[in-house]
């Protein structure tokens, strides 16, 4: 617990805590003053943030490139839709769908983990395997038309309380906060520490006696389940699921959010999700000015390449680096001042 406190102290200085509380209050009273479009944008950002954070567990904390992460996200959305369509739109069904999503994600994660964390599998082969598994699931969703409605996508109704936009806004805000706390606790737990150790030096971690494959499995389980839940909430929010949610586009989107925000920071996912979604919204609004903005993905792709080339730590990582540098500098100045003092 001590290390947790240290972490909180490191990341949350007094000013940051004040800023965060102000932000939280602003977010809580936000629906009173805003339009539905803004509300929807924020809700989307909250849900996508969870998806991005779940990806960060793998990419940032374990150094694993998962190109099939959409399996969980899209799967979550589909499970919700299928259950609502088959069993009706009641709150118990929603709760049941949570259980089913967890089960589904656990199964997917076990299969994916068992296959890609085998010894002797290179980064590339593992990435390929996840991509291929995702393609299998997407193809199943496409061809199993009775249940998933194929490429047309699945439209469904949700419990009436969940279709209230303002309620859903609060719901997803709470979802984000809860998931953030859970994932942070996980990263700060001894298990999380071992996972970071594996990223830093797999061989050494193994020689210390840790069964690294088991730890990797735990990480992909946690990550998969959180992505599945994010997908469930996302599906409930949109009342729609299509095969694109299962495609590599969504996996690379998750990668994009974490990379832009900063990998291995957990906040990075949230920051990346905000930046990308706001940017995307802006570009979509610019469509009426010039048709090139129809293809807004170009600009996102360019942003993504620029981040990899020039800002590999992402926004949060770069900021943190900057703040730490300044701290070191001010510490140096302080110490040089104290050194000077006796001489004067």
């Amino acid at each position: 617990m001590k290390s947790l406190r240290e972490h909180i102290q490191r990341d949350f200085s007094k000013n940051v805590i004040i800023a965060l509380s102000v932000l939280l209050i602003a977010l809580l009273i936000f629906p009173k003053f805003s339009s539905y479009t803004m509300l929807n944008l924020l809700t989307r950002i909250f849900v996508i943030s969870v998806f991005a954070m779940s990806y960060d567990i793998l990419r940032g904390y374990m150094g694993f490139i998962n190109l099939g992460h959409a399996v969980y996200f899209g799967g979550g959305a589909y499970v919700a839709g299928i259950l609502y369509n088959k069993l009706g739109t009641t709150i118990p069904v929603f709760i049941l769908s949570i259980a089913v999503v967890v089960l589904y994600s656990v199964i997917c994660a076990l299969v994916m983990g068992k296959l890609s964390f085998k010894k002797g599998t290179s980064v590339f082969a593992a990435a390929m395997l996840t991509l291929a598994l995702a393609e299998v699931v997407r193809n199943i969703a496409e061809s199993w038309r009775d249940v998933t409605n194929g490429t047309d996508g699945l439209i469904f109704k949700v419990p009436s309380i969940l279709s209230n936009r303002i309620f859903f806004y609060y719901f997803s805000l709470i979802f984000l906060i809860v998931m953030f706390i859970i994932l942070r606790k996980f990263i700060l737990s001894p298990t999380g520490r071992v996972i970071i150790a594996i990223r830093e030096n797999e061989q050494r971690a193994e020689f210390l006696g840790f069964r690294i494959e088991n730890y990797k499995l735990i990480a992909i389980l946690v990550s998969g389940v959180s992505a599945g839940l994010a997908g469930l909430v996302f599906g409930t929010f949109n009342r729609f699921a299509n095969t694109e949610l299962l495609s590599i586009t969504y996996s690379t989107n998750a990668l994009l959010y974490t990379l832009i925000g900063g990998t291995g920071t957990l906040y990075g996912g949230i920051v990346g999700s905000i930046v990308v979604n706001v940017f995307q919204n802006m570009l979509l609004n610019l469509r009426s000015i010039h048709p090139i903005f129809e293809r807004w993905l170009i600009f996102l792709g360019i942003l993504y390449i620029a981040v990899i080339l020039f800002m590999p730590k992402g926004i949060v990582g770069t900021l943190r680096h900057f703040i730490e540098n300044r701290k070191v500098k001010s510490d140096n100045e302080k110490s040089s001042k104290t050194e000077k003092a006796p001489g004067e």
Partner: peptide, 11 residues
């Protein structure tokens, strides 16, 4: 390299 080629692919 994987990431940057993915980005190039998108663009």
């Amino acid at each position: 390299q994987i990431l940057i080629t993915l980005g190039l692919n998108i663009v």
